[in-house]
Nucleic acid binder design. Structure first.
Lengths: 182, 182
DNA sequence: GACAGTATACCAAACGATCGGTACAGTAGA
DNA sequence: TCTACTGTACCGATCGTTTGGTATACTGTC
């Protein structure tokens, strides 16, 4: 099987256990591959695996979220579509954020740039929509930062409090919040 | 030395590396204690250490943040004081949140309840201020959830983007945002 | 079609290092 | 002498990684 087919399992594992907690034993069990086979697909070892997972996540975000923001349609409509996809990305507020979790642990500096770039791309995609909606550069930048703050904060709080309703409410109100007059 | 004196070092370590990444070697080096001494102070081992750190964090939050919310003064003033303390807690947006990081890793279920309780106490303290400011129960609950969402989200985004300005702006506008008419 | 060569995909077993944790003999202050 | 504390040495288990190899499928050459 191609190595891409193992990425989802790896993603789930890293998201739950983090970099250090996702041991090769767990990875081997989750993928059904022996350790040696894992090194066949990912010669760089664990770092290679996590790098591939982050690369996949960036692609997923681009294809399933950012592309919708750049598509045609009314700004509010596009932001709404983003929220729908984000809702499934975080399983309605019941799953944590991979990017947040991989910030900590051994060798975090190896992953930081990649994570930062992914989040920055997301930021820019939202800002572009807001600019298109008529806001000037500074306001658009500021509000898209607030959008990411709301999303990431909602994931953390909902997950910690075991209360998906918080996430749902934030996602539901986000499009209008971003576009309303200040 | 009393075991309390080692808690700050432990906290720093767990905040940076997470549960699995903070190995006993690193802990030994950071505290200057040998393994035997660590197990003298924390008979329960690593779980004991992380439990003590979480307990200390809850106390710190109570004494330095929640007590200010419950003190006398205008609601906006008290919320402003909270933001000041939170600002130093997260080093102006340059340090991640311990509670968020300890959610992942091996044995996360052992820590979840403690983390959840700490965040819930914070939530309730903010809600009490908002009720006192005249908002009804439901609105106060909802807005205090949004406050935690803003804080936690700002920490994550600022840390990831290496941009403390995001955190600063969120913290600066939070008191008025929470109290303004909707 | 038969045959050697090559690439891909996988695994069992073992590597040295480090993990979390323990046993015990001290040592220092009361 | 008792209690609190610590350094050293060690334990079995597990860590990430490597070695050496097998099975299958494809690719040319004859």
């Amino acid at each position: 099987m191609p190595k891409e087919s193992y990425i989802p399992s790896l993603l789930t594992l890293f998201r739950q256990y983090g970099y250090d907690g996702a041991t090769l034993s767990k990875i081997s069990e989750a993928t059904g591959l022996g350790k040696a086979s894992l090194y066949h697909h990912f010669p760089g070892g664990k770092d290679d695996m996590v790098k591939s997972v982050l690369c996949y996540s960036a692609s997923w975000l681009q294809e399933n979220v950012l592309s919708l923001l750049a598509a045609e349609g009314a700004p509010e409509e596009r932001l709404q579509k983003m929220c729908d996809r984000v809702n499934e990305l975080y399983a309605g507020g019941t799953e944590p954020c991979l990017l947040a979790i991989l910030q900590s642990g051994t060798g975090q500096d190896l992953r930081h740039a990649q994570i930062k770039a992914t989040l920055a791309a997301w930021l820019e995609a939202i800002a572009a929509v807001l600019r298109e909606a008529g806001w000037d550069e500074a306001i658009a930048q500021q509000r898209s930062e607030e959008a990411l703050v709301a999303i990431q904060g909602a994931v953390m709080v909902s997950f910690t409090l075991d209360n998906p309703a918080v996430f749902q409410r934030v996602m539901q109100s986000l499009p209008q919040t971003l576009l309303q007059q200040s």
